[in-house]
């Protein structure tokens, strides 16, 4: 008799992803779905998809979903949460969505300690539109809109969102993870679960930033992209917990 020790999580819709080969969006989708299965909350969860490569995320989860305008997912999530506070709300956003056009919505959801969970994929580039600079693109990074490399005197500095939001009193759990290795993938899963639990326990705003790859627009193979992430992104975006007040009674 064969026992299944690994299969597609139930909360993940059984449809193929449209993402490029080796794109880590798929890994994070699976982790979220596994956490939803484990916590048994699929029936009460509503996800908010961004505009960006993950715009079709509303097709990839079996829970109710809403598609938000570019950058507005934290505001849409606030509306859903305030409408039915017993629901569990997560947003799934890229770096352009969350740290460029949606910065105000992100900062204010955090400072309100809105009881939602944000999953923030940071791959330092705009993927869907073909590889333009993102607010998290590294200094010197070549993109469609920084063809000679990002220059500080022209495009300023990349934003460290986890550190920034951690300064806000309203932030309850902020952690930066990565899906570049099995160890880090498992840590990301545990962190996503902790963020959802923070929300379930009504302890306020939680965000998990996940360093991710974009093989197509980085111009690297999926495996090379993992190396590039380790060698270039991790030094500027150190992994770790930046805020955690979920232990005591908030």
């Amino acid at each position: 008799m064969m026992e299944t020790i690994f299969e597609r999580p139930k909360a993940l819709a059984d449809v193929p992803f449209h993402y490029c080969p080796g794109c880590t969006h798929g890994i994070v989708h699976r982790l979220i779905a596994e956490v939803i299965d484990e916590l048994g909350i699929e029936g009460d969860t509503i996800g908010v998809a961004p505009v960006g490569c993950a715009v079709f995320a509303y097709n990839y989860f079996n829970c109710d979903m809403q598609e938000a305008a570019h950058g507005r997912a934290p505001a849409v999530a606030t509306g859903i949460k305030r409408a039915n506070p017993e629901n569990i709300i997560f947003t799934y956003q890229g770096d352009g969505d969350l740290a460029a056009i949606g910065t105000a919505e992100t900062v204010h959801a955090a400072t309100r300690s809105e009881n939602i969970t944000i999953i923030f994929l940071n791959n330092a580039i705009y993927g869907m539109t073909g590889g333009q600079m993102a607010p998290t693109s590294l200094v010197g990074q070549v993109t469609q809109t920084t063809p000679y490399g990002r220059k500080v005197e022209m495009q300023g500095y990349p934003i460290r969102m986890s550190e920034m939001l951690a300064t806000l009193e309203g932030s309850s759990f902020i952690k930066r993870c990565s899906v570049d290795s099995i160890k880090n993938i498992n840590d990301t899963r545990a962190s996503i679960k902790k963020a959802f639990q923070c929300q379930i326990d009504k302890k306020g705003f939680s965000m998990v930033e996940v360093l991710s790859t974009c093989p197509t627009n980085w111009g690297l193979s999926p495996a090379e992209s993992m190396d590039w992430l380790r060698d270039n992104m991790m030094p500027y975006y150190p992994l770790g917990v930046y805020k955690d007040v979920t232990g005591g009674d908030r």
Binding site: F6, E7, G26, I27, R30, I182
Partner: peptide
Amino acid sequence: RFCAMICPDVVIKIKKRK
């Protein structure tokens, strides 16, 4: 299960004979 954990398209299923 490492292969299944890193697969971005979740195409790997693993079974174990009891």
